[in-house]
Design a protein around this nucleic acid. Structure first.
Lengths: 334, 334
DNA sequence: CTGAAAGCGCTTACAG
DNA sequence: CTGAAAGCGCTTACAG
């Protein structure tokens, strides 16, 4: 663990001043080709790596972007994360991911780890960080939010129309002849979940169908919730010919619960998810679902943030959701 | 975007020197309670956050650990990643994740982004980084490898006995009466894949069963590979009553291909995976698989690295694989 | 117990 | 075109 080689070592070795080394490193114009050459040679030979802390200190920026995710490894956030990573690749900016665990306290701590490291911008994925803090953060550097909408910070939010998405899903089932359509909702305090429930109700109303509260089960966006939803309906003798789940993970759980009861999908019950996780291509059967272009959303967030570093009021593009019809839905057989 | 408050501002405001501020910040002993109090009060009021770059520069360490992953969001690496995150939580060290994309060139670039940032240690997940470079890295700071084994750096590797794991899987199928057991192998240049193939062959040999090369299909560790494997066997009219896939993702693909052909699991064909991804609990049917404790492996890697920061030769614990029998396997009906 | 000073590794005006 | 010098925000001997 020998001392790292510094700019001084390079300067001495190449017989120039550290200024010259710095200049050739940063592609500043005023360096003689010969000196430049010499410096480059020494750098290559010694494997010199500029110290990012030192650069960050003097430049006042860290070339680092913080990303506050809630679950560093859920299939939903993963796709976004991967998009973010792709969006920053080649930009010179390094994303740093921290985990908020859907806990306001943890999120505050996580954000502190980021700001102490002088991140030049921040992307927030979902979460429960108090709006006041988001506000304060947005004053310090470019802030972008994905999977969460805060009205007063609407110019910082990547907007996805979940009311519309849920409507597409429900309408699809209605068009297939389904009348008793159950809904596995998300956590009701989440705006996204509430929007999807609203879209579901809207589609029912548009078709002149009655809304049955007993056909809505509030889950927690995970697989076990889907299992519980189905078991609860079955135990109560509640009938339905289709299920619209507020996310794919709950749809997977519902699928398993139906399988255990010998109920076939889609022959007996049609099933629609939401998100279009990569795994939904390969689920049994491949899942009809509302697609959120998660990867692209991550990429977009990264690109917009990058743009705002220079042009603070760049627009955030809108994101369109679409319905991906696969094999888990079919005509209702009366 | 006003200037950040620095230690100088605090010192001036509290009427002390910056040394005193620094000392109270670092819980150094020699500070009068009154001054300490005063400083703390000003810090709380102003929301001062020490600049991590400056601290890193003078301390010579960044309190940052690099993690080179290959795919920042694959279900396999995710669980490990989440374990790593948990393992560092509360330690004061921040993991920084970068993406190598299973490409030696990208990995070199990614590692450079890390070393330039003066990471105090490195965890490498899989990948193709040249051994020489791994060697060099291991001299600079504690290095830990997960999902890759390099003989000369064995003290840096978290070892998992995949020969044993594959043997468990294959033996299980043999005990269920299966004789023609197909194997969807991983990429043959991967040590892990080769080990699993070897375990498969070993179990066959131990049971006195012949090895049939046509029953082995080389996949790429993803779902489409599983589909292709099954389709290839079926197209060639090759018979089998069980499949052992070298990872869960390929098992999911195989499952879908069998479903499309109307072949039931486990009634017609038994299926065993490898890894025990979280999704395998909820697959249809829940998948029998060899469990790698991925989360714990990540946690272990983080903890060992942390320990080595102070005690360079701390041991890396061994990791045990186990067979998780669920519902995708059953007795062979002749 | 406390402050002035040196120094971490860089960048960037400022003189030449 | 090039170097000496100041300074980024901290920590840590070194004197008091």
């Amino acid at each position: 663990m020998s001392r790292n080689v510094t700019i001084k070592d390079i300067a001495k070795e190449a017989g120039v001043s550290i200024s010259t080394v710095s200049r050739t490193l940063n592609n500043a114009p005023l360096v003689t080709p010969e000196k430049r050459q010499r410096v480059l040679e020494v750098i290559g030979r010694t494997g010199y790596e500029p110290n990012a802390s030192a650069q960050g200190l003097v430049r006042g920026k860290s070339m680092t972007i913080g990303v506050l995710t809630q679950d560093i490894a859920s299939p939903f956030y993963d796709e976004i994360t991967r998009g973010i990573d792709a969006g920053f690749s080649g930009s010179g900016y390094q994303p740093i991911f921290v985990n908020g665990h859907w806990d306001a306290q943890d999120e505050v701590t996580a954000v502190l780890a980021l700001t102490r490291r002088q991140v030049d911008g921040l992307i927030v994925l979902g979460g429960r960080l108090p709006e006041a803090q988001l506000h304060a953060l947005s004053k310090r550097f470019p802030l972008l939010m994905v999977g969460r909408f805060v009205p007063e910070l609407s110019h910082c939010c990547l907007r996805v129309d979940h009311v519309h998405g849920a409507r597409l899903a429900t309408r699809h089932l209605i068009e297939l002849g389904h009348r008793r359509i159950a809904h596995i909702a998300g956590i009701s305090s989440h705006k996204d979940a509430a929007d999807r429930l609203e879209g579901y109700r809207l589609a029912l109303a548009e078709a002149g169908l009655e809304f049955h509260p007993e056909l809505v089960y509030e889950g927690e966006f995970d697989e076990p919730s889907g299992i519980l939803a189905v078991e609860s309906w079955l135990a109560q003798g509640i009938h339905f010919s289709a299920i619209f789940a507020a996310n794919d993970q709950m749809a997977y759980g519902a699928r398993l619960a139906l399988y255990r009861r010998g109920i076939r999908v889609p022959e007996d019950v049609s099933l629609v998810g939401y998100d279009d996780l990569p795994a939904s291509h390969f689920s049994l059967p491949p899942l009809t679902t509302v697609r959120q272009p998660l990867f692209e959303m991550g990429e977009l967030a990264a690109q917009t943030l990058l743009r705002r570093l220079h042009t603070p009021d760049s627009e955030v593009p809108d994101v369109a959701v679409t319905l991906n019809v696969r094999e888990s839905t079919c005509y209702h057989r009366r």
